[in-house]
Structure formats: C-alpha cells, structure tokens
Amino acid sequence: RYRTTFTSYQLEELERAFQKTHYPDVFTREELAMRLDLTEARVQVWFQNRRAKWRK
C-alpha cells in the first residue's frame, strides 16, 4: 500500500482536532474524514501515529 500524502490544509485540520482531543470518537473521525476527503481509517491511523509522536 502506498503512503498517504496529506495536504497542508489536511494536516492543519488534523492538528487542530488533535489539540482538542487525542482520542476522537468515531463520529468526530468520520466528520473529519468527510471534510478532508480522506477515509476514516486514514484519520484513525494518523491519530495513532500522532499520539505516538506526542508521547515521545
């Protein structure tokens, strides 16, 4: 599977959502995914990776 490349707008929005909550529920993820034209799975994985980065 190829690596997803996020646009700067998508990253800004994902980071903004991350500032609000590190653990968005499925509705929040679905809403973000639709708004950013991504799949909910991509959003979920982004948050997993972002939390890992945050913990370091």
Rank of each mutant, 00 (worst) to 15 (best):
E13H: 04
V43P: 01
T21Y: 14
E13A: 12
E40P: 10
W46I: 00
R3Q: 13
K53R: 12
Q10R: 00
A17P: 00
F47I: 01
E30R: 12
Q44C: 11
A41Q: 12
T4I: 08
R29W: 03
Q48P: 02
F6D: 06
K20A: 05
F18G: 01
Q48F: 03
F6W: 04
W54C: 11
D37M: 05
R42Y: 03
T39L: 10
E12F: 06
Y2H: 13
D37P: 02
D25H: 10
F18V: 00
R50L: 00
R51I: 13
L14R: 01
E15M: 02
L14Y: 01
E13Q: 10
W54R: 06
R35A: 05
R42G: 13
L32Q: 00
A33V: 04
F47C: 00
K53C: 12
V43G: 00
A17E: 14
L14T: 00
R51H: 07
L38W: 02
D37K: 15
A41R: 05
L32H: 00
W54D: 15
Q19W: 11
N49D: 14
K56T: 04
F27D: 13
R35T: 07
P24K: 00
T28D: 04
E40Q: 09
V43H: 01
R29P: 01
Y9M: 07
E13I: 03
D25R: 02
F6L: 14
T39F: 03
T39I: 05
L32V: 05
E30N: 15
L11P: 04
M34T: 10
Y9W: 05
Q44R: 06
A17S: 13
R42P: 06
Y2V: 12
H22V: 08
D37T: 14
R42V: 15
V45C: 13
N49V: 10
F27G: 13
T39S: 07
V45F: 04
F27P: 14
E40N: 09
Q10W: 00
K56S: 15
L36K: 01
E12Y: 03
W46D: 00
L36N: 04
H22Y: 07
S8A: 11
E31R: 12
V43T: 03
Q44W: 07
T5A: 06
E15I: 03
R35G: 06
T5N: 11
R51V: 07
V26A: 08
F47G: 00
